[in-house]
Design a protein around this nucleic acid. Structure first.
Length: 589
RNA sequence: CGGGGCGUGGCGCAGCCCGGUAGCGCGCCUGCUUUGGGAGCAGGAAGUCGCAGGUUCGAAUCCUGUCGCCCCGACCA
């Protein structure tokens, strides 16, 4: 990637501001809270229609289309093949994969007047694994057709309980989703190779969009599969957390983040076990306040129901159990917090007084618990806790490991301190495995003619989120600062004196020359004062601004201003096209 | 789904407590002046006060219900 990319002709057309449609606003609705939402409204990019659904106004659509074009180019370059699937799906397919129940209210269904109505058998797709798997089942019959990667750019529907933060979380959104099909995991043509290709394509896409992204290890979650990365952009407007090590060598989402073992400080360990009366005190905070100890000195004892059996998990008082980690270490499928009844049964006490001492149940301790001394924990007796508890002396630890959430102060597995950041997920690559091919009986014949289920990968990108994330990452008090590659227009020409023939004819000439040289430019020909035009240009965030005024022109000069730096240089009109090309080129390599 | 807040011209808000002519700023339209950082003056258009009931001589205002939107939390394959 070393050459200047030319913009698809789709984006290049003569454009006067007065003939376009750009409803900017000085003020914005109080409803908009996060910067990207406020600026998208103020710059005239979007307008809300209902909660979680937005119109993309002409300017906003230009950026969305540019993002789309970059995604399409890089997907094609990576060997993926575009197709288009419908938003309407037969619910039956979703039943086959068990996802009608798994999705619950997230699956958008149509209101039907009767059970025989087609509407009662139709839903709007929140994603397309079912539809694509059916395509593969129908048409891909031989290993010779593999590997294959099919993708689309489609509107998705999800019944989000709470849409928020403008286009960052909506019920209707544009997503690029790709699905790869393989018969092997390793080797040439295998899933691992296809996954790696997509990972690299994603890096290329986000780099070209100018985004400061970070790829993190992610939980594969209930969708199944064994490997997954999320692509994140750090922003306070996000709703996820990522952690990365100070040395940059380790990055994961919060749910996935592993922590280095906590050192045994070796202090204490001689106290004797003592029962203390703690009436009505159930939480870590209540008990630690009452006994004047730190939460770190307490052992939190959580009871779960794991595949139908009770399971006790021990973590330090200031830590939280990470259910995904616990599930993996325990080697179980289904994990949920135990009902109070089960807790009473296991501990012989009311909820809030569980402890590891004397409990008779499968128990897994977090590593940090194994190095505790003289700890405090529940006594398995209502209204009592015990102090002076020492692992191994007072209770046996047969199983232990990393089963907790990382917290600030923790270190990555390589020992480097962990840094926490709020972020927004813009892409996700995922090894699905055979979950869908098995449940939908999508198979193909291998070298020896034996039918085998496809091994699949899926790869998603939120197009609208790329747009919003770019704004979150690049804005100032004046407005948006678009990366060159996805700006609605690369250049705005501000003609300051529209009744002045010299000004207007030069503006028009430069506009035409820029168009001819493949630059997309809009000519601000509004009859407005300079400050008004500048403020709009800065609000919308065109990367470059050419200012042509009567006064400057008297000296034979015009101005070129870079939005990002605010830097202005006076140039000769004849230099303008070359200078702009230079700036555009420098920004797009 | 739990908790909180808000619905009054395109946008931002006041008015509501204490019922009685629907108001301000931005924007919009017309005219004149102005033209390098969101211009000035004059004139003008635009609102079923979210919706439905109720109380009242009279409801933006009080009561009941309902819908919508936003925020916090829960959820998020």
């Amino acid at each position: 990637m070393c050459c200047v990319r030319s913009l698809p002709t789709l984006f290049i057309a003569r454009m006067k501001w007065t003939e376009f449609f750009i409803p900017t606003a000085k003020e914005c609705p109080a409803d908009a809270v996060v910067p990207s939402h406020q600026l998208m409204i103020r710059a005239g990019l979007i307008r809300q229609v209902v909660a979680g659904a937005y119109t993309y106004l002409p300017l906003g659509l230009r950026t969305l289309r540019k993002v789309e074009t970059i995604v399409r180019e890089e997907m094609n370059r990576a060997g993926a093949i575009e197709l288009h699937m419908p938003a309407m799906h037969p619910i039956e397919w979703w039943e086959q994969t068990g996802r009608v129940a798994a999705m619950g209210d997230v699956l958008v269904r149509l209101a039907s007047v009767s059970p025989d109505d087609w509407r009662s058998r139709t839903c709007l797709g929140p994603t397309h694994e079912e539809v694509i798997t059916e395509i593969a089942r129908a048409y891909v019959r031989s290993y010779k057709q593999l590997p294959i990667n099919l993708y689309q750019i489609q509107t998705k529907f999800r019944g989000e309980a709470r849409p928020k933060s403008g286009v960052l979380r909506t019920r209707e959104f544009l997503m690029k989703d790709a699905y790869s099909f393989h018969l092997t995991k390793e080797g040439s043509g295998g899933l691992d190779e296809g996954y790696q290709k997509m990972y690299e394509a994603y890096c290329a896409i986000f780099s070209r969009c100018g985004l400061p992204y970070i790829a993190v290890q992610a939980e594969s979650g209930p969708i199944g599969g064994d490997a997954s990365h999320e692509f994140m952009v750090a922003t306070d407007a996000g709703e996820d957390y990522l952690v990365h090590s100070e040395d940059g060598k380790y990055a994961a989402n919060l749910e996935r983040a592993e922590v280095a073992a906590v050192m045994d400080v070796g202090q204490g360990g001689n106290a004797s076990l003592k029962e203390v009366h703690t009436p009505e005190l159930k939480t870590i905070d209540e008990v630690s306040a009452f006994l004047k100890c730190m939460p770190q000195q307490m052992i939190k004892t959580m009871i779960f129901e794991a595949d139908g059996e009770p399971l006790v998990a021990l973590v330090r008082g200031d830590h939280e159990v990470n259910e995904a980690k616990l599930r993996r270490i325990a080697g179980i499928k289904k994990l949920s917090p135990a009902e109070p009844e089960l807790i009473r049964e296991v501990t012989g006490a009311e909820v809030g007084f569980a402890g590891p001492v004397g409990i008779n149940c499968r128990m897994i301790a977090d590593q940090a618990v194994t190095v505790m001394h003289d700890a405090v924990t529940g006594a398995n007796k209502t209204d009592y806790h015990v102090t002076g508890v020492n692992p191994e002396r007072d209770f046996q630890i047969k199983e232990s490991g990393d089963i907790r959430m990382a917290i600030p102060g923790d270190r990555a597995p390589n020992g480097s301190p962990l840094i926490f950041k709020k972020c927004i997920e813009i892409g996700h690559v995922f090894k699905l495995g055979t979950k869908y091919s098995v449940s939908m009986e999508a198979q193909c014949l291998d070298h020896v003619g034996k039918p085998r289920p496809f091994i699949m990968g899926c790869y998603g990108i939120g197009l609208n989120r790329i747009m919003a994330a770019a704004i979150e990452a690049f804005h100032d008090d004046k407005g948006i600062i678009w990366p060159m590659s996805i700006a609605p227009f690369q250049v705005v020409i501000c003609a300051l004196d529209i009744k002045d023939d010299a000004v207007m004819s030069l503006a028009q000439k430069l506009h035409d020359e820029l168009i001819a040289s493949g630059i997309d430019v809009i000519l601000d020909d509004r009859d407005a004062r300079p400050g008004f035009k500048f403020a709009d240009a800065e609000l919308i965030g065109f990367p470059l601004r050419i200012t042509i005024g009567k006064k400057g022109l008297a000296d034979g000069l015009i101005e070129l201003t870079v939005r990002q730096t605010g830097e202005t240089q006076k140039i000769k009109p004849a230099e303008a096209v070359a200078k702009v090309q230079e700036c555009v080129g420098a920004a797009c390599i």
